[in-house]
Write a protein that binds this DNA or RNA. Sequence first.
DNA 1: ATGCCGCGATACTCGCGA
Length: 258
Amino acid sequence: MKIATYNVNGVNGRLPVLLRWLQETQPDVVCLQELKAPQENFPLQAINDAGYNAIWHGQKSWNGVAILARGLEIKELRQGLPGDPEDIQSRYIEAVINDVVIGCLYLPNGNPAPGPKFDYKLGWFQRLASHAAGLIASGLPVVLTGDYNVMPTELDVYKPERWLDDALFRPETRLAFKNLVDQGWTDALRKLYPDEVIYTFFDYFRNAYGRNAGLRIDHFLLSPSLEGRLLAAGVDRHVRGWEKTSDHCPVWIELGGE
DNA sequence: ATGCCGCGATACTCGCGA
């Protein structure tokens, strides 16, 4: 089963790019972030025509997450993380597909830091960790994937010294990610490529893609029962070079049978 | 060192992303 994550940065604005990439790579499951579309403006017909079922949690202007599946039933488990009924931002959606729990997340950016946005990021991280602990305890096979807005280590930043005070790289953020992983999760890309420079995001300006000035912020965390099923993983870097493309690259993993 | 770019909202500019 091939599972991908892709922060599309506007599902309608990027629709031609999304459809081209789906046609080219045909993942079984796709987690999307930053739909930037209200619930009623999700391009379901085009997604269906491309061969995918979908569930999504939209929001006007910002955020928004979706899970797509090709010829597989999607059983939705939840929209939003538990723990804060006041939180109205669409950043989490979860489903069972092929007996695997798929959590699709868009963790808050958190800049400027410090400040209320950074506090929101750390609070959201805490709620994610609480929920993730429950998923681990369930013993089910779980994939937690999406845009974490965290560079876990210096290897994941083209110029770490420039990012020390940034909400994506501050010590508090890296510690929150480490604490989450230490529950027993496996960072899939790092497990297969422990020492390689891997980027999933390139800024639009200063020719970041051309200069390979990237960040690794889109991640796959695998529950213990899935670690042994990880066959392959990668980044579809070339998609970042397309016209009208997102600033993120699609990232994917391949899982074998039980 | 810096949203320099790009998008959406309902604009003629701003908030936001990372």
